[in-house]
Amino acid sequence: ADPCHDEGGAPRGCVPGLVNAALGREALASSTCGRPATRACDASDPRRAHPAALLTSPAGSASPLCWRSDALTQAPFNVTLTVPLGKAFELVFVSLRFCSAPPASLALLKSQDHGRSWAPLGFFSSHCGLDYGRPPAAARGPAGPGPEALCFPAPQVQPDGGGLLAFSVQDGSPAGLDLDSSPVLQDWVTATDIRVVLTRPARPGDAGDVESTAPYSYSATELQVGGRCKCNGHASRCLLDAQGRLTCDCRHGTEGPDCGRCKPFYCDRPWQRATAREAHACLACSCNGHARRCRFNMELYRLSGRRSGGVCLNCRHNTAGRHCHYCREGFYRDPGRALSDRRACRACDCHPVGAAGKTCNQTTGQCPCKDGVAGLTCNRCAPGFQQSRSPVAPCVKTP
């Protein structure tokens, strides 16, 4: 079964499955313990190392299990965890398990341009105003028209001394927005990289003076980024390309890492994201097999009632026109051949003396004959005429 086409072969919207996009990706931490080695942490000893790779490695595959930061003795206590996802994903949730008391404040950021710029997805703090200058989400008024980064309570300490950050990406989004129909929401959930900024360590009982608890270290594992490989509804899976980059297995005449554009010959209408109801497949230009390239013309598309805007380029086999659907000057349609036949257009072959020009009727192939000349190519004198010696008037009335 092909998720991108129905039983009849018609295209339909399709999406890759929900995965942990961070799994196996290289996690980067701005601070990791073990250099220089201490009694508890030695980066050069696998049995005592706590590298950032433990954040995104399969559960239970390593021992120890948790990444750990260096001991932080004085402010600022910021430590950044970054996971490049390799390509754009549409996020559903982000979670992070803390192996020690979770921080009192942290920020969750995303990048849509492979780490060049960052935007917040959410903040988590026991003191939203103090840490991030914004009101707690619960105390905030009605949601705005679009998604925004809200400030949620910091993760609670669990009985085992750890804690869990669990964030649903649509938590910052007003209810009722639908991913299929809301470009704003599509943009909100799209990320190529995820970053967690651990801002302030927890202090038992309060969130005030953290320096009294120093040195402090953060420790975490299982950074999960739940999402779907972003293919804009035109692929049901993502694969590694020849260069080892994750890319959509595009269908519907689309191409690109996210199926974000139409393939070169598939430009009869503008690219569109597929929805659950409509595949919006890119359509091949109609060139009757006489052109390999085409371009999109918006004006023609509008004039056609938004049905067809492709213009064939470099029509071959002596054809011409927007769809290579008629014969170029000096050629006419052979009625015995299909329009898609390589020899659908025959040369006019107008007689150099008997014809008044070289261009024949494109339908009948009739050349324009001089007076008294007849025949499809004007190569004979008409009845009642005979050949003269003058090439200007090749046929004269028979005396």
Partner: peptide, 23 residues
């Protein structure tokens, strides 16, 4: 009646050298 095709050899190109088709 099928007329014979024009015979190029019969034309006199003396005054129309510039119109003469290349063979």
């Amino acid at each position: 009646e099928v007329m014979p095709t024009l015979d190029m050899a019969l034309f006199d190109w003396t005054d129309y050298e510039d119109l003469k088709p290349e063979v």
